[in-house]
């Protein structure tokens, strides 16, 4: 029971507990805040996997932007300030059964594959993953094309979101 395993189990409990609260709680604002705590647990996992850049970008993009967007959207689409009705559909037991079956199938496959119980080799000391990530994202032999296409996707999403959410004059 080394320190890393304790931290991993704590992060796992945080992530799964918060995720369960997200999908079962009745008040939507609390669901959005439990999502923030789940995303924070994922940040801890990235830091343990030594993907520093992804950990920090997770906080900036997911917690700082997407979670705030969710909270704004929840506040802007309610008729009164409290939630009173139930939030789950009447056939929630079927979704739970489906989720349970898929989970058991996946766990069975993961535990059956011997390659997956390997431990991590240590990263060679001179490797600068941040510089390699930057080089891979912009070098023509690596991944510059998905990078540029995703920037066009973000531009399209920006223009689309502003256009959809703006009030047109004749609707007033």
């Amino acid at each position: 029971m080394t320190v890393e395993r304790i931290i991993f189990i704590a992060a796992g409990v945080l992530i799964l507990g918060s995720a369960l609260m997200v999908v079962t709680t009745r008040k939507l604002i609390q669901a959005a805040l439990w999502l923030v705590s789940a995303l924070f647990g994922v940040t801890i996992l990235y830091a343990m996997l030594q993907a520093n850049f992804l950990a920090v970008v997770q906080v900036v993009v997911y917690i700082g932007a997407i979670a705030v967007l969710f909270i704004f959207a929840v506040m802007l689409t309610r008729k009164e300030m409290r939630d009173n009705s139930t939030q789950t559909r009447s056939n929630w037991w079927f979704s739970a059964l489906l989720g349970g079956l898929i989970l058991s199938g996946l766990v069975f496959m993961i535990l059956g594959e011997p390659q997956f119980s390997r431990l991590a080799e240590s990263i060679p000391p001179g490797l600068d993953t941040l510089r390699n990530l930057g080089t891979a994202l912009v070098s023509p032999g690596a991944y510059v094309l998905p990078f540029e296409v995703s920037s066009i996707l973000l531009l399209g999403a920006l223009i689309g979101a502003v256009y959809i959410a703006s009030r047109k004059e004749e609707d007033k």
Partner: peptide
């Protein structure tokens, strides 16, 4: 985590 998300998608109003 994926299965919890799947449950959320399928069973929320």
């Amino acid at each position: 985590l994926f299965c919890v998300g799947l449950f959320g998608v399928l069973s929320r109003k």
